[in-house]
Nucleic acid binder design. Structure first.
Lengths: 233, 233
DNA sequence: TAGATTGTTAATCGATTAACAATC
DNA sequence: TAGATTGTTAATCGATTAACAATC
């Protein structure tokens, strides 16, 4: 991972998408692809694809394009997916349990090793063979095991304190499903999954589209406008 | 929702965050706030806050700042959160069930009305009182009920066909947890929650940070480098 | 070799930040 | 009124797209 020039967040966010498309091509036994072809599939410009990739090196060949398998493996290395990562889940509620049961993470090398909760009814249980511990045991666990990422699936009210503790105990990555923005030291990385926020932007876009259609309808033929939402169901 | 000038996606994505911070201020009985104070809390520039808000109108007052409750309610309206939205879950697996059980959506006006699956063991059951139907009944259900958003929590392989059907039957919003990019008509809005992608970018950033620390360490004192990851756990 | 397609520089576009006159 | 802070225009910064020489 050369870190000579800073890679822009926009590029980093596109990397998993490239990785996914190349994986699909690989499964379809396609051996080579040009930026133009990939551009058509992914709905981004060929120029952007070439720019993005060239942040990390020249993976293609003039007149040929890119070798799918080679590029796939290079992106895999860039993303750091050629290793295993140990994760813990903090908060064994609905979402925490769902993530533990979601076996696809493991296939990618993301291994959930333990779950922590405060609920006595959960502590001592196992989920998909993974033990649920008392949060009080978390400090000891982290000091005796290598924890790369903590998955935070606990209530808003508790998230800040736990994130603070985890940072203190040396956890460097937090995947935050709690609906708060965490305040952590600069050397701790947080990736937020704010589901409610995501849903709200979807709702905004639906309404925006609808009100535009409205205007178009009105302009076009003055038809009465059917409401998109019916409060009485 | 005036749609005179197009609002940039960056602004739309920040709206739920403003809404959340204003809600917190409201709960703390804070009645007014300046862009400068909010800037400090949210870690964005005061300039950006004022620019963002002025896309939708002049909600503040010179010399005073913004009235928290008023601004909160304005953003609520902008996001369209002054109504109820009916949702269905397609795919009653881990994540689908977790979302059904996550009661916070309902508090915001997002109501899950039905779940659809192909698994005979699930069909006929209820989750938090919400019925699980056979996917075969989905067309009829959608034609007889108002469905604003379909939550797609089904396997990659099935997602494309289902999204296609849903679009055909008139569903305008899809909240997509399946790990594929859906191809839908222009008047259908898709918001993706690609969990694996999100985790991958976190991993990238951790590794990037680590390799930088490496270089700093090396430059600073030439200390031996402790690997961040231990494959043997 | 001729054709295709990359890598990369330059041009454009959009988003963020700075600055300040307007005004409460 | 004087001080504070907005709304908004202008300047800067960054990201995307276009263009093309290099080269396989």
């Amino acid at each position: 991972m050369d870190s000579e020039k800073r890679i822009s967040p926009a590029v980093i966010n596109r990397l998993p998408r490239y990785y996914r498309y190349l994986g699909d091509l690989l499964e379809s036994d396609i051996t080579r692809i040009s930026s133009k072809e990939l551009s058509a599939k992914m709905n981004i410009t060929a120029s952007q694809i070439r720019q993005d990739l060239n942040n990390f090196g020249g993976f293609g060949q003039q007149g040929y394009g890119y070798n799918v398998e080679y590029l796939y493996n290079e992106i895999k290395k860039i993303l750091g997916l050629d290793r295993l990562y140990n994760m813990i889940v903090v908060g064994g509620g609905n979402i925490g349990q769902a993530l533990v049961n979601y076996t696809n993470f493991e296939k990618r090398g993301f291994v959930i090793k333990a779950v922590f909760d405060t609920n006595p009814r959960l502590i001592g249980m196992t989920i998909r063979g993974i033990e649920v511990y008392d949060v009080d045991q978390m400090e000891e666990y982290i000091k005796n095991h290598n924890v790369d990422v903590a998955i935070l699936t606990l209530p808003r009210s508790k998230a800040a304190k736990v994130a603070n503790d985890l940072a203190k105990w040396g956890v460097k990555g937090m995947w935050n499903f709690s609906h708060v923005d965490l305040q952590v030291p600069d050397d701790v990385l947080v990736e937020n999954v704010h589901l409610t926020d995501s849903l709200m932007t979807l709702i905004y876009k639906i309404n925006e589209m609808y009100s535009e259609e409205n205007e178009l309808n009105q302009l076009a033929n003055g038809l009465p406008i059917k409401p998109i939402i019916d409060l009485e169901d």
